[in-house]
Write a protein that binds this DNA or RNA. Structure first.
Lengths: 126, 126
DNA sequence: ATATTATAGTCCTATATTGGAATATGTCAA
DNA sequence: TTGACATATTCCAATATAGGACTATAATAT
């Protein structure tokens, strides 16, 4: 069996792996709810492409639609993006500035510890 | 020309769209640097698969390798994950609790404003 | 009813990606 | 050098995806 990655339509991570879809989400975030036609204009992509991306985003649950006349107005439904946020957040502590600080601290502590043990156990008041 | 999404090996978002790769990153985060063989055991996937995923993560720059004898030890290089973090962070304000609060506030304000205009323009001291 | 507009969905094709097996490469030990 | 081990890479087949053109559906206007 050849199972590739989880389906685009069922995994938020995969859904936002496509730049155009991220762009759509950004637009919905900054400009509020938008009709498909508006998105088509803003993005400059063919309508069928936009609709298909919206379909993916809809199925994965990061956007919501409602009809307004003959238009379909899409809006952000960002809750599932929190999943992504929570995931990357785990790695926060490993980003450079954090890392540098933590690492040097840890190393210094280790060195001092070793030193104390190797030499005379003198405790400074610092 | 048929350009699909950005290459897995050049886009962090795409790189982490694959669950196994996320799993690898998680392992490197929680257990520190690990040799490929260890990862193979921990993940239970065939070595070639693990190596290939590591290759992607390496090319995209979220892991670093160094040789230790005949082993290759991989470690996290989380800086590029910050990109992802920063991106999703934009949507923070749209998550439910936030959204609910902000939305109702805005709506109430709008309603009050409309009311004031429709009726007698009385300004409370609040 | 019919035309028009807005959008979704379908069909087709090119491409990227993945897994698996087998193989190549590199490193150490005897 | 030869062999054993650790890992990367290559080749192949299956699948998912994306774009493009076209068609279907739905809502509105005439």
């Amino acid at each position: 069996m050849r199972m590739a990655r989880a389906r685009t339509t069922s995994d938020v991570f995969n859904a936002i792996a496509e730049p155009r879809r991220r762009q759509i989400l950004e637009l919905l975030a900054t400009r509020g709810a938008l009709a498909v036609g508006t998105l088509v204009v803003l993005l400059g992509h063919p309508q069928s492409a936009v609709s298909k991306h919206l379909g993916v985003l809809r199925k994965v649950g990061v956007v919501a639609v409602f009809k307004q006349g003959k238009q379909r107005v899409y809006s952000l439904d960002a809750n599932r993006l929190k999943t992504v946020h929570d995931w990357v957040k785990h790695f926060e502590q490993f980003w450079d500035h954090h890392l540098a600080r933590i690492k040097t601290l840890a190393e210094r502590r280790a060195r001092e510890h070793a030193f104390v043990h190797k030499s005379q156990q003198q405790k400074g008041p610092s």
